[in-house]
Simulated scan of single mutants.
Amino acid sequence: MATGTVQHPLITHTTEVPGTTVIPRIDMRPDGLHERGKQLVESIRSGPRSANPFLITERAEEKQITLSSRDLQLSDFGLLKTLGTGTFARVWLVKPKEQKEADKNKVYALKILRKADVIKLKQVEHVRNERKTLAAVVGHPFITTLNASFSDDQSLYMLLDYCPGGEIFSYLRRARRFDSETSTFYAAEITMTIEYLHESHGIAYRDLKPENILLDADGHLRLVDFGFAKQVGNRETYTLCGTPEYLAPEVIHNSGHGLAVDWWALGILIYEFLVGQPPFWDQNPMRIYEQIVEGRLRFPPNMPASAQNIVSLLCKTNPSERLGHISGGASRVRAHPFFQDIVWDDLFYRRVKGPILPRVSHPADSSNFEEYPDPPDSRGQSIYTDDLRKKYESLFSDF
C-alpha cells in the first residue's frame, strides 16, 4: 500500500498508487475582498433557515472580512511561520500588511498549493472539491472558515481562520488517552459537524481522524483538511482514499461507499480518544484492512459501557445497520446514552468552553504547532508550464 508522511492537518497529503489515495499514519506523535472573494461571501449568505439548529443553512452575516478591496496576492501578506507542510502544499501563519487599527492583531492560516505539483500528483479534483466544500460550509462553528481563495501564475491559495490551539492529536498523545468527559465533549462536536455536512449538503468528509482536528483558543474544535470531502448525497463513490486505521469496510472492499463512512470513523475516533489508539492497528496496513473487514472490536474492561455500545453501533461492518446511517440519522446518535450529559444547544452556540484550553499568549502565538524547516529553493520545484496552463488553468477558475 501507499507510504508517505502525514505532517499537518491543513494539508491534503497523498502518495500516489494507481487508483488509490491512502494516507498512512506515521509515528504516533505528535475592508472587503477582491471580486471573486466578494462573490464568495455573497454566495454563502443565502439559504432558508433550518428548523434544526444543528443543520444551519444560513450563513454568518455578521462575519467581517478585514482585507483590502483590491485583488489579493501573496505580497499582501507577511509570512510569519510555517504551520505545516505536505507533498504539494505549505501552510503559513500570515498577517495582512494593510489592516484597520481594530484588526491590527488579526492573523490567518494561508494554504499555498503549487499548481504543477497538484497536477503531477493527480490531486486537481481533490483540491477543487476542498475549495468548493469550504465555500459551502462557511459559518459552521466547528469547521475551519475559508475567508478567500485566490491564485497567481504558479500557485493556488486558501485563506483560512487561524486556530492557535494546534492539533487535538498532539494533546491526545501527551495525555495518552482522554477521560470520558473530554471524549464525549469532542465527539459531540464532531457529531453535529457530520450531521451538518450530511443532512444540509450531502457531503461525505472521508478523512476524520485526530490529526484533522484543531482547537481554537476557547477549546472548541475545528475540522480541517477537506481535500477528500465529496458531495455524494444518496449516491455511492468508489475512490479509495483516507487513512488506513479509519477506513470503513466498504471502502476497503471497493463496493461503493457513501455518507455512512463518516459514522464508522466517528466510532473509531471515540475509541481512540478513550483508549489512546484505534481499535484496528498493525504495522502492516494490509493486516489493518483484514481486521477492519473482520470487524471484531475488543474493548478494555475499564471502558464505559455506553462508550462500548456506541462504538459497536457506529462500527457495524454493514453500513445499512450503522448508527447514524439507519432510520433517524444523526438524531439517533445524539440520543444515545453516551451523550446523555450533553446540552446540545449550549455546545453548538459555544456557551461553554472546551475541556482543553490551549496555552495562547497572543493572537499570533504558534507555540502549539511544531517547528518546520524553511521552504526549499524554488529553483528545484516543479514549474507550471505554458502547456500545463493551456490544459488545466480552466479547472482552477474558482480560485
Rank of each mutant, 00 (worst) to 15 (best):
D179Q: 06
A335Y: 01
K390W: 00
L67R: 13
L215C: 11
E181W: 12
I252W: 01
K63Q: 15
G19Q: 04
L208D: 07
Q283P: 06
D207M: 15
I112Y: 00
C163L: 01
V352G: 10
A89G: 14
P376K: 12
I112N: 00
R25Y: 11
G329Y: 07
D345A: 05
L240W: 04
F54D: 03
K115D: 01
K353E: 10
G329W: 03
F396K: 12
L93F: 05
E236M: 14
Q277T: 14
E98Y: 06
G219W: 13
H336L: 01
I292S: 10
E371W: 04
L160C: 06
C163A: 13
D225N: 15
V41R: 15
Q154I: 05
Y171M: 03
R49T: 15
S46L: 06
M192T: 11
T184A: 13
F169L: 07
V352R: 14
Q291D: 07
V17F: 10
I23L: 08
F280G: 04
V22E: 15
I56T: 15
N147Y: 08
K209T: 11
K81F: 05
V94K: 10
R131I: 10
V118R: 04
P363W: 09
P279G: 08
Q123P: 02
S180A: 14
P279S: 09
V137D: 00
Q39T: 11
L357A: 11
S367P: 02
A148Q: 08
R287V: 03
G267N: 09
L223F: 14
L259S: 05
C163V: 08
V124W: 01
V91L: 05
F348C: 04
S170W: 03
H126G: 00
E189C: 11
H257G: 02
R176H: 12
Q340C: 02
F169S: 03
Y289I: 03
E125A: 14
D31Q: 15
V94D: 03
F348I: 03
E272Q: 09
A204Q: 07
A330V: 04
S331N: 09
N129T: 12
R298N: 06
T20Y: 06
T385Q: 00
P373T: 10
D346Y: 02
M192K: 12
R177C: 11
P376S: 11
R332H: 04
F299G: 08
K97V: 09
M1L: 15
N129M: 01
L79R: 12
R222E: 02
M303A: 02
A307M: 05
E42K: 13
P319N: 07
V94C: 13
T57N: 13
T87R: 12
L247G: 07
L146E: 01
G256N: 06
W263D: 01
I356K: 09
M1V: 15
L160D: 01
R296Y: 05
Q39V: 10
I310K: 04
L240K: 14
M192V: 10
V352C: 14
Q381F: 01
V293F: 04
D207T: 06
K120S: 12
F77Y: 03
S149C: 09
R334W: 12
C163I: 02
E371D: 13
D71G: 06
A188G: 08
Q277V: 11
G37L: 14
K353D: 08
G165C: 10
H336T: 05
Q381M: 08
R177K: 15
T66K: 13
K97H: 05
I356F: 03
P319S: 13
E62F: 15
G37A: 11
G267Q: 06
F77E: 07
L223E: 07
R389I: 00
I252S: 07
I288C: 09
E272D: 10
